[in-house]
Simulated scan of single mutants.
Amino acid sequence: MDTSLEKIYGKKVRTRVCGICVDKKGRLLVVNMKGISSDLEQNKPFFSPIGGGIELGETATDALKREFLEETGLEIEVDYFMCVYEYVNLPIHAVELFFAVRAVGGKLKTGFDPEHGVDNQIITSVDYLEYSKIQALPFEQRHRIFKYASSIENLKKLRGYIRAN
């Protein structure tokens, strides 16, 4: 993992929100980031649902709406809470709250992560992808939540607590 990322995200428990957003064609909205996983080289892609950290005093749903706007340019509505996903691979420890969401406004664009400067952006693209294309990616290049569902329908049915393994 890039040492600048470790300084931002490492050595603490980080509470995050993630949104499962499906378009009318049945494709899942994902962000492509570089240098996120400790299993990856810094410039390798990593595909993940849209999301990010909750700021102090911010509700989970407000954080999710903010993250979607920042990363994708889309305004969303939150439909329902899905599951808790916990990832521990020190120095990273994240507790992620997953929600089913839908786009209600805005225009899809590759956004900006304010935690990183202009010259150190980790977001390389955002796009709707067929779930089969996500599943075909190497394991280390996709969020581990995708391991627990063989389809978008099954992904949206995940409930309870999931511990990454």
Rank of each mutant, 00 (worst) to 15 (best):
M33I: 07
M33L: 14
M33V: 09
K34F: 02
G35H: 01
G35C: 03
S38W: 11
L40A: 11
L40H: 02
L40E: 05
E41N: 10
E41Y: 10
E41K: 10
N43G: 09
K44R: 02
K44L: 07
P45W: 14
F46T: 04
F47Q: 13
F47K: 13
S48P: 00
P49Y: 04
P49N: 12
I50E: 08
I50W: 08
G51S: 00
G52M: 08
G52Q: 14
G52W: 08
G52D: 02
G53T: 12
G53F: 06
I54Q: 04
I54A: 01
I54L: 11
G57C: 15
G57T: 09
G57W: 15
E58S: 07
E58V: 03
T59V: 05
A60D: 07
A60Q: 14
T61A: 06
D62G: 01
D62R: 12
D62C: 06
A63C: 06
A63N: 13
L64I: 10
E67P: 00
E67G: 00
F68E: 02
F68I: 09
F68R: 09
L69A: 11
E70Y: 10
E70A: 01
E70R: 14
E70D: 08
T72C: 02
G73C: 06
L74V: 01
L74P: 05
E75H: 04
E75V: 00
I76P: 00
I76S: 03
I76L: 05
I76E: 00
E77C: 01
E77I: 02
V78G: 03
V78E: 07
Y80K: 15
F81M: 13
M82S: 13
M82G: 03
M82W: 13
C83H: 12
C83W: 01
V84C: 00
Y85A: 00
Y85L: 10
Y87W: 15
Y87Q: 14
Y87I: 06
Y87N: 11
N89D: 12
N89W: 04
L90D: 00
I92Q: 09
A94F: 12
A94K: 09
A94V: 05
A94C: 03
E96C: 05
E96N: 09
E96V: 12
L97N: 13
F98Y: 15
F98R: 14
F99D: 01
A100S: 15
V101H: 08
R102E: 06
R102A: 02
R102Q: 10
A103H: 01
V104L: 13
V104P: 03
V104S: 07
G106S: 05
K107V: 04
K107C: 03
K107Q: 12
L108M: 10
K109G: 09
K109C: 08
K109D: 06
T110V: 08
T110M: 04
G111N: 11
D113V: 10
D113H: 14
P114L: 08
H116S: 00
G117F: 07
V118R: 13
V118I: 11
V118C: 01
D119I: 09
